[in-house]
């Protein structure tokens, strides 16, 4: 499991440019699915099983994309100015390294003497070792992601793009393990979640599911001076109640609670006042789709070092498998 998560998190694939991660995931899951395809927005859609009595067509969404930066200007001296792809925090950028999809590595910095508060993305620049615009290997429109290795800390794991490669891992592992289900399962590895759940919007329309379940990370609140609210690392998978894009469907919440209880897995109820996931997009398509989200608590979300708890992941896989192997009563 950790081997696979290492491969997933170390792959570079910002929103809109998901080919690398898509190819990796396709190779992992191809032997286990009935049908696999890629749609206009680049979503990877894998189908497994047929709908039987009491079953539903369930869309399980994990987003493949990660936050990143896009070159917006190459200065006369060869520095690369950038725009953000998704919610990049400039504070965590300074001093970080990035890698462009063409392999170019760069260092993010800024003119410190001009800055007396949190910088904006526009004030950052990337130094790729060029001496002028002419020898800069980056063009306007090129994209990059953070360059950091995956670290296994035993109880905890840390990597860039844990958001949402851990969701991809849950989907892949569950897909491999599920043998029998009354449900038609459609696993969608979605694109462009970080910039507004856009891949989920179109793929949910295409799949036309009866139930939607997103797999994603959520913000943990257990750093030293944090008010101890839900969720925290190591206290179990999280069942989303609300965020700004979704009021989770009560029946989906109930089914998740039941699945966890059946294996005596401790869960946390997640009430988030902001942010959103693919479930927010899925629940609005066509006639509306009862939807929910299974989340993994994560520290330092959208930084180059996102941290999660190993047992949360293991428990989430067990819980998701039970959830999908049984009928969900709407």
């Amino acid at each position: 499991m950790k081997e696979l998560l290492k491969k997933l998190t170390e792959t570079a694939a910002p929103s809109g440019h998901e080919a690398n991660i898509r190819n990796l995931i396709r190779k992992e899951i191809e032997p286990y699915v009935d049908e696999i395809s890629v749609d206009v927005m680049g979503n990877l859609i894998a189908r497994k099983g047929k709908k039987q009595k009491d079953g539903h067509r369930i869309l399980i969404a994990a987003h493949m994309d990660e936050i990143g930066l896009m070159a917006s200007h190459i200065s006369e001296k060869g520095f690369v100015y950038v725009a953000s792809i998704g919610g990049v925090n400039p504070l965590t950028c300074v001093g970080s390294r990035v890698v462009f999809l063409n392999g170019t590595v760069g260092v993010i910095s800024l003119e410190t003497e001009k800055i007396d508060k949190v910088p904006t993305i526009n004030q950052l620049f990337i130094d790729v070792g060029a001496t002028s615009a002419d020898d800069c290997p980056v063009n306007v429109g090129d994209v990059c992601v953070f360059d950091r290795p995956f670290i296994d800390m035993r109880k905890r794991m840390v990597a860039k793009a844990m958001d949402d490669r851990v969701g991809c891992l849950l989907a892949i592992e569950t897909l491999k393990q599920i043998k029998e289900s009354p449900n038609e399962l459609v696993f969608v590895f979605t694109t462009q979640e970080e910039i507004g759940a856009r891949g989920a919007t179109t793929s949910a329309y295409g799949v036309d599911p009866e139930i939607g379940i997103a797999l994603d990370v959520t913000l943990s609140a257990d750093t030293p001076h944090c008010t101890p609210v839900n969720p925290v690392l190591g206290e179990g998978p999280c069942i989303k109640v609300r965020d700004s894009s979704l009021i989770a469907h009560p029946a989906v919440i109930e089914a998740m609670k039941k699945a966890a209880a059946s294996r005596k897995i401790k869960v946390q109820m997640e009430v988030l006042r902001f942010a959103g996931t693919d479930a927010g997009a899925i629940h609005t398509v066509r006639s509306g789709v009862p939807s929910g989200c299974l989340s993994i608590a994560c520290r330092y979300v959208h930084s180059p070092s996102e941290m999660i708890d190993t047992s949360d992941v293991e428990n989430a896989i067990v819980m998701l498998k039970v959830l999908l192997e049984n009928p969900i009563a709407l």
């Binding site: 979704l246 009021i247 629940h283 006639s287």
Partner: peptide, 15 residues
């Protein structure tokens, strides 16, 4: 439903 939060009334037109 959900007019006060995320809006779902476009689903009515679909139905």
């Amino acid at each position: 439903t959900q007019e006060e939060t995320t809006f779902l009334s476009h689903t009515v037109v679909h139905d």
